[in-house]
Design a binder for these strands. Structure first.
Lengths: 269, 269
DNA sequence: TCACAATTGCGCACTCCGCGCAAAAATCAA
DNA sequence: TTGATTTTTGCGCGGAGTGCGCAATTGTGA
């Protein structure tokens, strides 16, 4: 019976067109309340809608969920790195942001600053788009939904038309003397183009990435750059980087997670 | 009694940290169910949360709202146009999508198809990114948060490297013989580049746009194209377009909201 | 300390939800 | 076409969640 499928699609449309209550939906579709409830139950268990008391609304889009699952790995370390990196950015800077959850954490901390931002990180677009203090440019290209970023020839073409004061890179792994590694050559090619266009290069990598060489595509960093990592890194991990000429190492202390500063509570009203 | 304010903040935090039900909230805060319900009622009427059956979730952030407010203008007409336009797309097509709420409505209907999609419409990215049947390319450029799209030299540069079978354009106004108009030259310049790269051009415009010339930047359409509009258009509005050589007029009937074309239901799985 | 206002907890009537069951409709096979 | 099977639908019921009135409690200011 394909009527049910049609009806569920119809229900979705009606909900999209302004939140409707169960009674209204039943009247519009000329079916019983039970049927609407059953359909809504199906739609809500498939994640398309969220039930409310007496109705339903559209669920927020899925990307949130997939993002947040990755976000939660080494959350504290990433936040500490992001906080340290945010302190390296000055108002008025033009900043180039790569993909990766650590860079995303940095992006969230930059959203209220006055900056010129260029990125291929699609997850950050809604964050910056709200601000009118930020001049936002997005690199085009093919969208890889896993990493929520753009890559490929179009992205490289675009980045070569730009320059930036500061580049913040993510990586799957980083090894002193060999550079950083990623899963595909495509990702590396774009990072390489980015590196060429930036005055300063910062690599954000938590302790688990240091010395990790589990990916096949490599980008050597034959220029001065700064490694920003967290206090979970051992001295054995850090030493090789400290010895490299041109490399600066910044260790972010991951003491306390985000606490609202005293005296700010009133501003929340 | 400032305890209530504190408690409401606490409730918000708890909801933020994963959807909680009323019973759970009451237990955590060590207050009665009534109190939690009263607080939730306040929070929901102030728009901070949305009540669900037995609990509450965070309301979606404001940007959605501003989008949907635009979305709701002539909703039925836009949906009818989108439905008609969706029937013009065949599986396997490479499709170029412009910005605009009508084009967004079309995008939502294409999300489960097998297509190659190129767009500067940032609002559609989360829609397509979920699908693995869609090869998605985004045009880069400067982000205009009002229209949630990318524009400027980078976008034009990127689009000139691509071609598409079908282009679906939005517009602020369209006048027979003069073409379409937009608020800025930047928007028009990108549309012009798009038109040059597409084999077929479709302009999606509801009746309120036909004959409307309230914007200063114009793009003449000196090539065959198709106007897709809704049944709200009068014959006086349509006649000038019908008389133009090379222009096809499609009037979408806005009788019933959104019906999936027969034979497509299986593709929705 | 006392009066007043705000807040809280509880009971109650009401609404909404999910489930079981039987009728109706659609699908399939012969 | 006919009949058996599966799916869907509508209805009634018990249970869960909600909002409201009322009384008790707690905080506030004179």
């Amino acid at each position: 019976m394909r009527r049910r499928r049609e009806r569920e699609q119809h229900i979705l449309d009606l909900i999209r067109a302004g939140e409707e209550n169960v009674e209204e939906l039943a009247r519009r579709l000329d079916v019983s309340l039970s049927t609407v409830r059953r359909d809504l139950h199906r739609l809500s268990s498939s994640g398309a809608v969220t039930r409310t008391y007496g109705g339903a609304i559209l669920s927020r889009p899925a990307p949130e969920a997939t993002l947040s699952s990755r976000e939660h790995i080494n959350l504290q370390a990433k936040q500490a790195i992001a906080a340290a990196a945010a302190r390296l950015v000055e108002d008025g800077d033009s900043v180039l942001l790569d993909v990766g959850s650590t860079v995303e954490a940095l992006g969230l901390r930059l959203k209220d600053r006055r900056l010129s931002i260029v990125t291929n990180n699609l997850a950050l677009l809604p964050v910056f788009a709200i601000s009118d203090e930020i001049a936002l440019t997005v690199l085009g290209g093919n969208v890889r939904s896993i990493s929520m970023g753009t890559f490929g020839p179009l992205a490289e073409l675009a980045v070569r038309r730009l320059t930036a004061d500061k580049l913040f890179l993510g990586a799957d792994g980083v090894v002193a003397g060999r550079g950083l590694c990623e899963a595909t050559q495509e990702q590396v090619a774009l990072k390489e183009a980015m590196v060429q266009q930036a005055a300063s290069v910062f690599l954000l990598a938590d302790a688990s990435k240091l010395g990790s060489a589990h990916q096949p595509a490599w980008l050597p960093l034959n220029r001065p750059w700064t490694l920003v990592t967290d206090s979970g890194a051992t001295e054995e991990q850090l030493q090789p980087f400290r010895e490299l000429p041109g490399v600066t190492v910044v260790v972010a202390s991951s003491e306390l997670p985000a606490r609202v500063p005293a005296g700010l509570e009133d501003a929340l009203d």
